[in-house]
């Protein structure tokens, strides 16, 4: 390692890397579909389902994950040459839990209602496998700019699945979206007339989330052609 750094070949000025070349583009776009962290890599599902009953808290959760993932990737990438490899997990966890503490205090201060609804799930971003997984697999081996893009791509890949699940759950379960009535009130039974529409209560419960995510994964894999053994 030191020998290569000292050798004259590397000491020459490096060719200038493009700020947004092919590799950077791949770092952002791959996790959106082809290597989606939830649907294909099976990471970060722990917190994915609990917060998706309504769209509002889901959006807050997604913003928190995007911030934590980008920031932790950048910080870990900046520190990567200083972290001894045998204690790297502890260092990464410390970085991540400090960032999550910041997010949770900000939410407490400015969006108290939403932070109450999300309860422990903001704090549980610490053990979200995507964050630690990207720090370990990408940020430890790449520069800060590329790590930032990789964090952004993975966080958005995580966010769109959450948002899709949340939209279906909120519209199906309570007929609302962001607390606005989407299903026309005339469809519901009024006691006099009964047009026959009722909300699907299953959507609001835990099993509904599991079934929906199962179906979403099925559709995503059906289109992208990915299969695995049982």
């Amino acid at each position: 390692m030191t020998a290569t750094v000292d050798s004259p070949a590397v000491a020459q000025p490096k060719p200038k890397k493009p700020l947004f070349g092919k590799k950077e583009k791949r770092a952002v776009l791959d996790p959106l579909w082809d290597h989606n962290p939830i649907a294909l890599q099976v990471l970060g599902i722990c917190s994915a389902l609990a917060v998706t009953v309504k769209l509002g808290p889901t959006l807050a959760m997604c913003a928190a994950v995007i911030f934590v993932l980008c920031a932790s990737n950048v910080v870990v990438s900046l520190l990567r040459r200083m972290i001894p490899s045998n204690i790297r997990i502890i260092v990464m966890l410390t970085v991540i839990s400090s960032l999550v503490t910041v997010v949770s205090l900000v939410l407490n201060a400015f969006m108290y209602d939403i932070s109450k609804q999300l309860s422990v799930f903001i704090a549980l971003i610490v053990t979200n496998c995507i964050v630690l997984g990207r720090a370990e697999a990408f940020a430890m081996a790449n520069g800060p700019w590329r790590s930032f893009l990789d964090g952004l791509g993975n966080a958005v890949g995580y966010a769109w699945i959450l948002i899709a699940v949340a939209i279906v759950r909120e519209v199906g379960g309570s007929g609302k979206l962001l607390d606005m009535q989407i299903i026309p009130a005339a469809w519901y039974s009024t006691g006099v007339q009964d047009p026959g529409y009722i909300n699907n209560g299953l959507m609001l419960l835990a099993p509904g989330a599991f079934l929906l995510l199962g179906i979403l994964v099925w559709v995503q894999r059906g289109i992208s052609g990915y299969t695995e053994e049982n």
Binding site: G214, W218, R221, E228, N230
Partner: peptide, 20 residues
């Protein structure tokens, strides 16, 4: 099991049934 439902997908659906 249908090919693209194998693994993660069917596991989720079964988990949903257990949760129910």
């Amino acid at each position: 099991v249908p090919a693209s439902l194998r693994g993660l997908g069917i596991t989720f659906i079964v988990t949903g049934l257990i949760a129910m």
